[in-house]
């Protein structure tokens, strides 16, 4: 017996994570209708893994496949923890961003992984080759599959072409919570990309001030989701970050043509016009943002004040 307060506080957390943990282990059932029976990305390079040094080699493999020239030795300094003889997942994400690529963590399903391979994207996976209570972590890169044989083809450790059965792979991958990382060239979207999650991954790149890469990634995303306001706002923000204010203005105006009541866009347009020293236009846009209220109203009030201050100084 426990009281409702306590139940609410901890049981919710425990239960939710428990449910997620149990049910995120799907049976490796694969929808084969939409896939060809074989695929192998033979052009993906191979970097043999140094002793126990898991992480750098696999990351180098997918980064090079995405058009970044980098060696495992260069990456080791950024992602490798000698004490663990391994890299943390977050470090792989951070290192991918540092090399101006969008790290996208796939939905934890074998089907999804296969669809990305079929689309020509090598997938970095985390495996636990030991047991849940005695884990042996390992990163590998899936580069192909053979549906009739029910096998995956991996660049793994010192093996340039390891074949692993679906069942065996599902076990080791499942023990690593089906963690899979996709790194595509900036002109390519993952075919299975979730709109909001993918845009969040780009926004993280933008936060790291990788504006050139972010602008290109947003442009690519807009080709698939032309009506997504966050993608267009992000493109504008990246242009602004690059100091390309005329282009930024153009993007914000396109966005406002689609979404005339988006306060964030009016505010950022005002900021851009401020940089272009078009005081009256800037004030008008900022006022518009402030009048719309909502979440961006405080920013709009600051923007108004900033424009007035800077105009006086001129």
């Amino acid at each position: 017996m426990f009281n409702a307060d306590a139940a609410r506080r901890w049981l919710g957390g425990v239960l939710l994570s428990g449910i997620t943990a149990c049910t995120s282990l799907p049976v490796p059932r694969v929808d084969e209708s939409s896939l060809s029976s074989h695929a192998e990305l033979t052009a993906v390079g191979f970097f043999p893994q140094e002793d126990h040094q898991c992480g750098p080699a696999a990351l180098a493999t997918v980064l090079n496949a995405s058009g970044v020239t980098v060696t495992p030795e260069e990456l080791a300094a950024q992602v490798y923890l000698p004490a663990r003889q391994c890299s943390l997942q977050v470090e792989l994400l951070a290192a991918t961003r540092r090399h101006a690529r969008v790290p996208y963590v796939l939905e934890p399903q074998l089907d999804i992984l296969l669809r990305e391979i079929a689309a020509g994207h090598a997938v970095l996976v985390l495996q636990n080759l030991g047991f849940s209570w005695l884990p042996v972590w390992h990163y590998a890169v899936v580069v192909g599959f053979d549906l009739p044989q029910r096998e995956l083809i991996l660049r793994s450790g010192r093996e340039p072409r390891a074949t692993v059965g679906f069942g065996e792979f599902e076990r080791s991958w499942g023990l690593a919570r089906h963690w899979a990382l996709l790194v595509t060239p900036l002109e390519h979207l993952p075919v299975t990309a979730d709109e909001t999650r993918y845009l969040s991954a780009i926004a993280e790149l933008e936060t790291q001030r990788q504006f050139v890469a972010a602008a290109l990634a947003y442009t690519t995303a807009l080709a698939r989701w032309p009506g997504n306001p966050a993608a267009r706002l992000g493109l504008g923000n990246s242009r602004y970050g690059l100091g390309q204010f005329a282009q930024a203005e153009e993007v914000y105006r396109e966005l406002l043509a689609q979404q005339p009541t988006l306060g964030a866009a009016w505010n950022n347009l005002a900021m851009t016009l401020l940089e272009l020293q078009r005081w009256d236009d800037a004030l008008e846009a900022a006022q518009h943002a402030a009048d719309l209220g909502g979440a961006s109203e405080p920013a709009a009030r600051d923007t108004l004040a900033e424009i007035r201050k800077r105009r006086e100084k001129m």
Binding site: S200, A230, L233, A264, M271, D302, T303
Partner: peptide, 18 residues
Amino acid sequence: PAAQAQMVGTDALLHAQQ
């Protein structure tokens, strides 16, 4: 830079969208 502080970030809009 004071200017950067008043831009509305993409992540804020994404959170609202989500």
